[in-house]
Design a protein around this nucleic acid. Sequence first.
DNA 1: AAATCTCTTGCAAAGGAGTGTCATTATCAT
DNA 2: ATGATAATGACACTCCTTTGCAAGAGATTT
Lengths: 149, 149
Amino acid sequence: MEDVKTFESICNLLRNRSYKLTPQRQTILQTFLEQADRHLSAEEVYMLVKHQNPEIGLATVYRTLDILAEIGILLKNDFGDGRSRYEFSRKDEHHHHHHLICLGCGNVSEFDDDLLESLEAVIIKRNKFKILDHDLKFYGYCHECGEGH
Amino acid sequence: MEDVKTFESICNLLRNRSYKLTPQRQTILQTFLEQADRHLSAEEVYMLVKHQNPEIGLATVYRTLDILAEIGILLKNDFGDGRSRYEFSRKDEHHHHHHLICLGCGNVSEFDDDLLESLEAVIIKRNKFKILDHDLKFYGYCHECGEGH
DNA sequence: AAATCTCTTGCAAAGGAGTGTCATTATCAT
DNA sequence: ATGATAATGACACTCCTTTGCAAGAGATTT
């Protein structure tokens, strides 16, 4: 089980899933690795990738992000700003972290917590609902934008 | 402070905010009151409303839902299915409830909990983040769809 | 190394939700 | 009733995303 996300290991993962290792996919992957802490939209990835390879098409970016999400490399997030945002998935977390979304600057920071595990147990019992995933977001103002609000 | 949501009380609220009480708005409101437990999208409201008044336009539905959300009658939700969904807001909750979204039938049920209050306190301290709102969703399978998953 | 098969690409067009425009119409206060 | 002002419906248009398709690579076999 790979868990360290190196360029090489992800390339191998693609090959194992019989995805072809095209230069476009490599460029997109590399760009993402250089921005590992950010939550990029397809458009943002597209802009960054164009510096390396201006020939690349937006549809290819969308398709590649889909694939990377499908094989578990990326996570597709919806922060309510009308576009999907992608981040590296850390497989070590069985349940992923939560997000703090700043309404001022739009920046997204992360927050880890296990409180929800116990909450899930309650819900399963009380509501007879089989939980597969959860999604917790906090909206507010970060330290920089906080003054004045 | 009104808290019981009768047709009359909401009409008064509209008038007080100097919104005009048009037949379209009344029809939309009435339709919503008849579906009080559901989480309807604009398109769904549009379809329902057309039975009463086929002349009504989709844009009017969007505009009316916006207004009703603005004056605090409705809550606008994003359950990740690509369209906004509206529900009655229960003002008695200072923090609103969470949602259980069934991946099988798409049905949305509700869940109340206060656990997040303490979590917010932790976040405010640890991340210096001023929280205004939160949004917690659980994805999984409801009792009916649960078998087989 | 060439041929082959299949997957990918880029482009342009199409989708789908939601918003803006604008002439026409309706509401509400007087 | 009447006039000021807001709301309506139709439609064009935006924005993000997906799709159809012909041309262009990967990878694999000969």
